[in-house]
Amino acid sequence: MDLIRRSFIATAAAAAITLAAPFVHAADRFITVSSTTSTEQSGLFKHLLPIFQAKTGIEVRVVALGTGQALDMARRGDADVVFVHDKAAEEKFIAEGYGVKRQEVMYNDFILVGPKSDPAKVAGGKDITGALKTIQAAQAPFVSRGDKSGTHAAELRLWKAAGVDLDAVKGAWYRDTGSGMGPALNTAASMNAYILADRGTWLSFKNRGDLTISVEGDKRLFNQYGVILVNPDKHPHVKKADGQAFIDWVVSAEGQKAIADYKIDGQQLFFPNAAK
């Protein structure tokens, strides 16, 4: 049974090689932040987190999801801090007792992106609800996130404000993709559709095809980001001190300046507005 013995030795060697190499461990001191795809994919966190880590030694691990999912993840206790952008959903999260306190951090704005050919003739305007009404009337293709994200919630609010009852008029023109901002933009680019996007993701998005900004500057397109510490009373393992240190830093003068400093091609992506 020499062969059997030899196979055991070979297997043991393989095991030693794969298992003994330790997983590359970053800092032992870390917090988990559930956040949105817009903050991660726009590159903001890549800019902010190293500054914070250099100062405090706390590594921040970001899981990027839609706002709805990010809050659900925190409800299950899988995050220490949430950093999202849907005020109504955030306040509900606090009211349910899952969060300690909501603090505003920064804002940017949503934009209506559409094809350069502009089939619905809405380009150049400032009135977002008027533009949505026109798109619906023209049955021009419109891509929706449809994923319970902050941007999706904003889109639904705007349709409502425009007096369009989506459930009644939804048709082939309205494409509910159930995907993140980037994938939804990819879809819109490939079918030349209109889409509501956050400016940060749009600025960092590379596969624009024939898309361009159609409507911007309406004050209803305001996009506020908030940060919340997950309630340690609900989830005792929450890293309260380190999580709070991160929150204190992003709303501090230094953190706020770091946010303002983040630019793509000279354009500022997020505007700090934490309460002093």
Partner: peptide
């Protein structure tokens, strides 16, 4: 998957 999301095909 992430780079596809960012449109960096």
């Amino acid at each position: 998957a992430l780079e596809t999301s960012k449109g960096d095909l």
